[in-house]
């Protein structure tokens, strides 16, 4: 290789050098892109949105078989326990009817008291249902792509929930798709309140299924089993959305088990409270 004799080996050397040049320039380009991406530029976001929008219809079709199989397995499992479940549900139903009566009474009372005090009502949420078509990143990033986008009124910063509780927030909204950053992602920071005392803290994801509480007050006494709800601080989310439960609480850390499991995300709801959110420059509330 070092001493090219014929035309062929000279050509080989040229090819080798060209390849080497291509390799080095591409490596340089990846580093440049890392820096551009870190600066959070609009171009990168647009590129992500465009690619997601283009690929979502394909992913939608690809997700179909897995969804069907999962549905089938769930049906079989439920069929086995149908009698027991029925009895349980009847019992729960009776109990819930009693609660409903109580809730209605309290709601009335609450409305009257609010009217007396002249408090401003919280904004009503408008919601959009969407399907999860891609669960991306494996252990490196915790986000999902959903089948609703700008055309359905989905915008950056909106809260995404399931029946169980908060799943995440919209970080990028395309025309027909949107990316939801899950609360377990390493970049996720959510203002929350802990337990009955309602101590303020920030729920910080770390790419593991169990996020942690940070900036928790020194005096706060939290215990395993405490419920975590969104605080609504900084206008990021509407207050009171269920988030998770404390599973470990010692001096070093407070670990949370979210109510929403990443694996079971199939359909989600995007809530639009008309809040500007922490993503916008001018935070809405407070």
């Amino acid at each position: 290789m070092k001493q090219p004799t014929g035309q062929i080996s000279r050509l080989g050397t040229f090819k080798y050098l060209a390849q080497r040049f291509a390799f080095l320039s591409l490596i340089g380009l990846t580093f440049a892109l890392m820096l551009i991406g870190k600066a959070d530029t609009v171009i990168v976001e647009r590129a992500r949105t465009a690619v997601s929008d283009a690929v979502t219809p394909i992913l939608r079709v690809m997700a179909e078989p897995a969804a069907t199989i999962s549905q089938f397995v769930t049906n079989l499992q439920e069929l086995g326990a149908i009698r027991e479940q029925n009895a349980d549900l009847r019992e729960t139903n009776t109990r819930l009817l009693e609660w409903q009566a109580v809730a209605q009474k309290l709601e009335n009372e609450n409305r009257q008291l609010r009217a007396l005090l002249g408090t401003v009502n919280e904004p009503e949420a408008r919601s959009v249902s969407a399907r999860v078509v891609a669960d991306s990143g494996g252990a490196f990033a915790q986000s999902v792509l959903i089948t609703a986008g700008g055309r359905d009124g989905v915008a950056k910063g909106q809260a995404v929930v399931t029946g169980e509780g908060l799943a995440g927030r919209v970080t990028q909204a395309g025309f027909r798709s949107a990316r939801v950053l899950l609360i377990t992602d390493i970049n996720s920071r959510i203002p929350v309140r802990v337990g009955e005392a309602g101590d303020r803290a920030i729920l910080a994801g770390n790419n593991s299924p169990r996020p942690r509480l940070i900036y928790l007050g020194v005096k706060s006494a939290i215990a395993p089993g405490d419920r975590i709800v969104t605080s609504g601080d900084a206008g990021a989310f509407p207050p009171g959305l269920p988030v998770g439960r404390v599973v470990v609480a010692d001096e070093a850390s407070a670990v949370i088990e979210p109510f929403v499991a990443r694996d079971r995300l199939q359909y989600v709801e995007v809530l639009d409270f008309g809040l500007t959110g922490i993503l916008a420059e001018t935070a809405g509330a407070k």
């Binding site: 690809m62 897995a66 792509l145």
Partner: peptide, 16 residues
């Protein structure tokens, strides 16, 4: 794209 498709199997998404 196959790797991106959700499997809905508990615990699998984390170890794609």
């Amino acid at each position: 794209l196959f790797g991106l498709t959700p499997t809905y199997v508990p615990g699998l998404a984390q170890i794609t």
